[in-house]
Every structure is written in C-alpha cells, then in structure tokens.
Simulated assay, not measured.
Amino acid sequence: SRVVRRPQIRKGQVLLDLCETEERLSRTTVTKRHGELYKAARDADWGDVWPPADE
C-alpha cells in the first residue's frame, strides 16, 4: 500500500488514506495503542509505503 494523502493527525490517532494493491482506496486509523506504528504514521508522507518496512 502507498499513502495517497497527507496523514490527518488527530488527538491520539492518525488517519491514513491508502492505495491498495487490488486497485482500491482505503482509510486506515492508527492509534496510540499501536506504539511504534503510531509514531511511523505521524511521520508518514504522501507516496510512502505503508506499513513501513522494518529496518
């Protein structure tokens, strides 16, 4: 998946609009409970791969 819009940062959550591999759009919500994934979602930008690859 790729981020197709700048992430919408809300209190305690981040909304990501994604383009899926099946040629469809979806919206994913990442909350503070997701820990490291939440931190990555806040730093995500348009065109980034989601979920981020572990380094």
Rank of each mutant, 00 (worst) to 15 (best):
S1M: 07
S1T: 09
V3L: 06
V4A: 03
V4P: 06
R5K: 15
R5I: 00
R6H: 11
P7T: 09
I9R: 00
R10H: 09
G12Q: 02
G12D: 06
V14Q: 03
V14Y: 00
V14D: 09
L15M: 05
D17A: 04
L18D: 01
C19P: 00
E20D: 04
T21E: 08
E22Q: 08
E23D: 14
E23P: 15
E23S: 11
R24W: 03
R24I: 14
R24P: 12
L25H: 07
S26D: 02
S26K: 08
S26A: 03
R27H: 08
R27F: 02
T29I: 00
V30M: 02
T31H: 07
T31C: 10
T31Y: 06
K32V: 15
R33F: 13
R33E: 10
G35R: 15
E36A: 10
L37V: 12
Y38T: 06
Y38N: 06
Y38C: 09
K39T: 01
A40D: 04
A40R: 07
R42F: 12
D43T: 12
A44Q: 03
A44V: 04
A44F: 07
D45W: 14
G47K: 13
G47P: 13
D48E: 12
D48L: 10
D48P: 00
D48V: 01
V49F: 05
V49L: 07
V49M: 09
P51N: 15
P51V: 10
P51D: 15
P51H: 15
P52M: 09
A53P: 15
D54N: 11
E55N: 10
